[in-house]
Structure formats: structure tokens, C-alpha cells
Design a protein around this nucleic acid. Structure first.
Lengths: 327, 327
DNA sequence: GTGAAAGCGCTAACAC
DNA sequence: GTGTTAGCGCTTTCAC
């Protein structure tokens, strides 16, 4: 791309300043001149250099995005929502998989600083915790998604997990599943307690809790453990879908029928909820919307508006076979 | 970030050229000077501007990536593999979801041109087809992933679909499922015929083919259609997992037992294969490896080496319940 | 309405 | 081994 604004200016018989004016749209240029410039651009197949533009204008129109792991089924939708919105703003996304690797996190923060991105979106609780001070020092807006900021230092977009826990538990009670069991996620994940708090809002002191790990195995283990102190019918709210599916396999192993004796609700509504037997009722988060909203916050901050605090996104229940009601 | 190389140079009592030399590593600088510069960098918390560097050095160390849709379960692993490898090269990824929207494709190509990315990776057959001439005119390397280039104009990384079709069919024959049925994908997807060719290598003239659409519904429809001209036992190779799952539900509806009377093999090995009943045997592609290999090709091309032609990635079979053998 | 000129922050010759 | 200098390709005053 060695054709520059100077080439266009010469061909059009104007100055580079005029070419710049035409291409930036706003300024007042004679229609005739404008036309000549456009023709020259066309003829030379000129593409302005974003690099030079960025150097001069001190803004890149690029947003940095750091995600824990795009392979985690939670993120593709979120990334899509963010990306769609960011591009609608005429900006682009510089993408980084943090991989929960401290060294790489540091490198990525360096990269985004060097590239002079206009703002950063972080969807990695580990990074947010480990690098809070450094993020504080960033001279650009930082927005968190699916992460609570320690001390609410940064604007954050998260699902309303407490309401999620609540509607899950309420649904089980309504359907006639007696006491409620909660299978928690891994302890270090911040949201565990919030979801659990929502469940507790409904179940009160009757709540039985066992610690899973957010995966199939932990869910199964927690279910087997808790099975020693309870008899059907009862309802299970798991911290996420994988835990719920693990719990269902444990229940199957115990000979307790789902949904005949036990009702199970998961969280996140990942694809497989539709394919397991029985299909799993789950709390749905609007992942695409969360990404899009994060982009919206970035836009506001870049416009000089404020957007602090934690923004809760609504959740809803996708009701399926696993909570059809006791036989 | 208003601290520049000049500030560092002044504080260290050297010229900007020396600072540049120290930071670039290579050139010969007195250890003592080097130390002074490093201290100044530290003290001022200096981060060099990638923008200025790119303008001067005419290279951004950024790779553009265009993906059809990150929401398609095929892509996250591929993106992860690409991203890991690209970052290991000290480069970054500028990310675009093409969304099979012509207007957006054009905008993305403009964006990547303006941002002066060093190379482009395209994982979108639509874009590759629609913009082949424009891609041809790009003054930078273009690498295709999971897409065949029309006329092999661009280096491409694709799974060895023919071998995939072959091992799927062979497996069914070995397990004792008689004649083979193939449920094809949507016609415009280039790989359909290649996978089918592999199946045909084994089944020969006995092959029955019905057209699906790559989704659940099409798979089910195709299966019902073909059921009129065949009786169990037989084997089914579907164009992808969703088609296979659709076919299984049709078979269930027909009262034909899987795997007791019919064996079914899918393609892609998406997550849900493990959760459907019965778990689905599927042809596995190394998606992560495909992304990583694409990055490797980019690296080679940027090094001035050649890397033309279509690079076939090995496939293998993940054997599960759906092909346990006829009862 | 348009042009001249300065300069964004860096690197790469070229001197010494 | 280090400094000086000239741009990279734009945008943006400031004139006219």
C-alpha cells in the first residue's frame, strides 16, 4: 500500500490538507474539488493509513479485549455481542486469550498499552484480581464483563446472579420439589455466593449446600455426598450446567428419578442442556447482550460520560424436562 | 501515556537513538548506558508507542482474523490455536466476525487494510468466494483456514475430509453395518463432496445419498426420506454432527434402534456428541492445531518463505456408543 | 475554500 | 558506541 495521501493530492491537483478534509467528511470543500479528490482516490485505489492517522490524532479506534478462554462456551456469544457493537461504533477489537497464565496476562497488558488501544474490556476474573493496581494506572477506560471488580473500581457488566438463584429455587418450589439443595461452584469464583444467596432467599434455613467445582465431576461428587442426608423428593439448584449434569448422573446412579423424584436446575444455559436426558432447566443469561452492553459502556466512557458501578443484566429461566414436577 | 522516547533519552542523558537501540535489544550499547536507559524507562514508566513504531518501521506485528461466526462451535478452538501461536510470534490478532454479511465483509476488509495488518487469516468460505479478486490484490499474505481457496490461489489449512469420510465408512463396515447411507451437507459448502468422496471410496456403488442442510432438521428430513428405500441394518455417515443427531432422532421416530440396527457416525466431534443418547461416534478434526498451523504459515510467509497449496490436517475417529455394532 | 507547514513518536542511515 | 537528522503518512493550526 505505498500510495499515500500525497499521491492523491498531486493527482487531484490539491493539497494534502484538502484530501484529508474530503476524507474526514466534515469540513467545507467545494463539491467540485471533493469530486476530483474522490476520483483520484478511486483511481489510485488509495486506502488511508490508520497507523499514521492514529499517530497524529492520538486515538486508534481499537478496543482491547481480554478473555479468560474463548474455548469456554460462555464467551463466544459475549465476544460476538461485543464485537458487533464495537464495529457498529466504527471501532475494532484487538483480541487476547488470557489463558489464566500470569506471564501472558502481563504480556497482553503490555501489548494493549503499546498498541495504544482506546479502551479495554476484560472478561477474566483472575486478571482483574491479579492486576487491579496496574489496571488502575491505565490512562484509558477499562470495563469488566462477567467479573465483579474488587471494590467496584471499574464499571462492570454482570448477570443478576442473585435473581437467577432466586427464580431457580422458586421454580422448584412451585413445581412441588420440597427442600432445596445447592451445589456450589469452585470457592474462588466470586459469583458462587451471589447465586447461592438468591437460592437462600427462597429456601431460607432449609437449604443444604455441597461444594462442587463447576465441572461434571464436582457436581456428581457433591450430589453423592449430599444424598446421604436427604431423601426425595427435593430440588437441586446447581452453580452451573456442568455441575447440574454431573448431579443428574449421580442421581441416576442412585436410582433417583429426574424429574420424577428430584428436580434439577442449572445455570448458564449452554447448548448441551437441550441434549442431555432429561433436558435440563437452566437460568439463561443474555451473553450477547452483556457483550453489547459492555461496548455501550466503553462508548459512553470514550464520550466523556460516566458509567461507573456494577450493571446487572436480567436473567430468565428456560424450563425443560428436568423440572416437570414430581411423579 | 504522554511520556515519549525523548523524555527517556533526556532523563538517561543519551539520544533517542540510543534508547531505541536499547529497547530493540540487538545493537551494541555500553552495558553502563544500557543500564541507565533501563532505569529511566522504569522511572518514567515508559511504554513505547506501537503506533509510531509501526509508522516508521512499516510493519504492525498485527494479524487480521476474519471468522464467519465465533458462535459456531467449530471456531473457538481454532481461534485459540491461532491466537496462542500468533502471540508466541510476538504478534497480535485483530478480530472480525464476518457474520456472512456482504456489507460487513467489505467493511472488515477495509478496516484490516487501513490498520495495515501484516497478514490476514480468513475462516469464512463466503468471504473467500465473494472477495477473491480483492484478496488477490492485497499486498500482504492471506492464509485460509477451514476453507478451500477457489483455484488454490491462497495457502489453505483444511482437515483431510476425504480420509475422514473414508475412516467413518470403514468403521461402519467393520462393525457389521451393511450398506452405507450418506447424509450430505448444504450444497454450497465446498467440503461436502470431499467428505462424500471418502465415503464413496469405501461404499462404492452401494452408497445412498440424501441431501441435508448441515443442521438438525435437514439431517432428520434426509434420514426420513432415505428410509423409504432401505431396511436395517445399515450405516449412516452424516456430513456433520448436527446432521447426525437429526438423523438419530428420525431413526428413533422410525423405531429403528441405534446402535442395535443402525450405526451412525458424525463429523466435527462437537461437545454434544458426548451427551446425546446414544453418544455419537464422530470424525475428529484438530481444530486447535489447524489454527496454530495457519499461524505457522503466516509466519513463514512473513519470513519470505513460500507456503502455497492446500495443507491437509490429519483426522481421526472418536468411537462411541452409536456404532457399538448391530445387536 | 484551500494551501503551507509543523509535528505526532519512533527508527534507520549516516556521521564521528 | 553514540548522536544527528530525516522522514514514515497523516491532521491541524494558521494564513490567505
Amino acid at each position: 500500500m505505498s500510495v499515500t495521501i500525497t499521491d492523491v493530492a498531486m493527482l487531484a491537483g490539491v493539497s494534502t490538507a484538502t484530501v484529508s478534509r474530503v476524507l474526514s467528511g466534515g469540513a467545507s470543500v467545494l463539491p467540485e474539488t471533493r469530486e476530483r479528490v474522490h476520483r483520484a482516490v478511486e483511481l489510485l485505489n488509495y486506502t488511508p493509513s490508520g497507523v499514521a492517522r492514529s499517530l497524529r490524532s492520538r486515538t486508534t479506534r481499537v478496543i482491547g479485549l481480554i478473555v479468560t478462554d474463548i474455548t469456554n462456551p460462555f464467551y463466544p456469544d459475549l465476544v460476538r455481542g461485543l464485537e458487533d457493537a464495537v464495529h457498529d461504533q466504527g471501532r475494532s477489537v484487538l483480541f487476547c486469550n488470557a489463558a489464566e497464565n500470569v506471564e501472558r496476562e502481563q504480556r497482553y497488558l503490555d501489548v494493549l498499552s503499546e498498541q495504544r488501544v482506546d479502551a479495554m474490556v476484560v472478561a477474566s476474573s483472575g486478571l482483574t484480581r491479579r492486576w487491579a493496581e496496574r489496571l488502575d494506572d491505565f490512562p484509558i477506560p477499562v470495563v469488566l464483563v462477567n467479573v465483579q471488580s474488587p471494590g467496584e473500581r471499574f464499571p462492570a457488566v454482570v448477570a443478576d446472579n442473585q435473581v437467577g438463584g432466586r427464580i431457580a429455587a422458586e421454580h422448584l418450589v412451585e413445581r412441588g420439589y420440597g427442600p432445596i439443595v445447592h451445589i456450589a461452584g469452585a470457592l474462588e469464583e466470586g459469583e458462587t455466593s451471589v447465586r447461592q444467596a438468591g437460592v437462600a432467599d427462597v429456601a431460607g434455613d432449609d437449604l443444604l449446600v455441597a461444594a462442587g467445582d463447576g465441572h461434571l465431576e464436582g457436581g456428581a461428587r457433591a450430589m453423592l455426598e449430599i444424598a446421604e442426608s436427604i431423601e426425595p423428593p427435593f430440588g437441586v439448584v446447581a452453580h452451573n450446567d456442568l455441575s447440574a449434569i454431573g448431579a443428574m448422573s449421580a442421581l441416576h446412579q442412585l436410582g433417583w428419578d429426574v424429574p420424577g423424584q428430584v428436580g434439577v436446575v442449572g445455570f448458564d444455559d449452554i447448548d448441551v442442556t437441550r441434549y442431555v436426558t432429561p433436558p435440563l432447566t437452566s437460568v439463561v443469561q443474555d451473553r450477547y447482550g452483556m457483550g453489547a452492553y459492555a461496548a455501550e459502556l466503553v462508548h459512553r466512557l470514550l464520550d466523556g460520560e460516566s458509567a461507573s458501578g456494577t450493571h446487572l443484566m436480567p436473567v430468565e429461566l428456560a424450563v425443560r424436562e428436568s423440572t416437570r414436577g414430581p411423579a
